[in-house]
């Protein structure tokens, strides 16, 4: 049996806002291929204030899919649609006192339904831009696609490097065999073979020679440079914290919740690293809370 929180059970056994909203003017239909769950979110949005007056869900899915749909509708009712779009997967999971890592996709689905519904309201076409792979690291809920793309984007060669970049394998280490298999497959694409004895590339300490304040300002400038690219895709990025070589950012708009934000983060990371002239790692802001909790 899954380890569901009391809150998840409560929202499953007694779901709020179940069913379609009458005279809805925003509808979002999304599903997750990896598990076959699907969700329809209907909203009634006040055209003058753009406030969500009512929200309803219909879900074909498991206990936590139903619970996170229920939670999402509770969270967004009464919100301005722009604020609603800022609700993250973690917000939904937090509202439910957490979800098992295997079940995080359930809250992803809720968020995506919201994006689709808002796009529908605005007369836009919404398309999903990430794919989900098989869950590899259960400790940190990292899937195979995320690991593959991170390996490709950063030329990773060892399990340790994969852990440094994605956190996958940084917990109980049971998934190291799986990570080695992914490394073997991805390295084979570029004609290399996986060497279990390879030493992880050393992560250099900050060497930019700037003061902390100068460095932070420089990071902000560099983010400004990259911002128009993100906004063109209806997304945005916000700087949350700089801690040594770690730069924590919050992806917003269309970027938020996109589990493949890793690719985008990779691009931002490259831009910052080049601009600062030092190795830095860009991480989603959820990491900050997790690391604080874990450390």
């Amino acid at each position: 049996m899954w380890d569901y929180s009391e809150k998840v059970k409560e929202h499953f056994f007694d779901p709020r806002n179940a069913g379609a909203v009458d005279d809805a003017n925003a509808v979002g239909d999304v599903g997750s291929l990896s598990c076959g769950d699907a969700l329809r979110l209907t909203l009634k949005v006040d055209p003058d204030t753009e406030t969500i007056l009512d929200a309803g869900f219909q879900t074909f899915g498991c206990g936590s899919a139903i619970a996170s749909s229920s939670a999402l509708t509770e969270i967004i009712k009464g919100m301005h649609i722009d604020d609603a779009l800022k609700v993250s997967n973690q917000d939904i999971a937090d509202y439910l006192d957490g979800l098992p890592p295997e079940k995080m996709h359930c809250s992803v689905m809720g968020r995506e339904a919201l994006q689709a519904a808002v796009a529908n309201y605005r007369g836009e076409e919404w398309s999903d831009d990430h794919e989900e792979g098989a869950l590899i690291c259960k400790c940190f809920a990292i899937d195979a696609v995320m690991i593959e793309e991170t390996i490709r984007a950063n030329n990773l060669r060892t399990v340790e490097e994969v852990t440094n970049y994605t956190k996958a394998g940084g917990g109980c280490s049971s998934c190291h065999e799986g990570i080695e298999e992914i490394l073997t497959a991805v390295l084979a694409e570029r004609g290399e073979s996986f060497d279990p004895n390879a030493v992880a590339a050393e992560i250099k300490k900050p060497t930019s020679g700037l003061t902390n304040l100068q460095r932070m300002r420089r990071i902000e400038e560099l983010l400004e440079e990259i911002r128009p690219n993100l906004q063109r895709d209806h997304g945005d990025v916000e700087l949350i914290e700089v801690d040594g070589k770690y730069v924590y950012v919050k992806m917003t708009g269309a970027c938020a919740g996109c589990q493949m934000a890793a690719t985008t983060l990779g691009g931002i990371q490259q831009h910052l690293a080049e601009g600062l002239g030092e190795f830095i790692q860009v991480l989603p802001h959820e990491e900050l809370a997790r690391r604080a909790a874990g450390a």
């Binding site: 990896s34 076959g36 206990g63 295997e102 098989a134």
Partner: peptide, 11 residues
Amino acid sequence: GSACTSGSLEP
């Protein structure tokens, strides 16, 4: 036989 009961998410 549902995906979500298997622990792997695979149906």
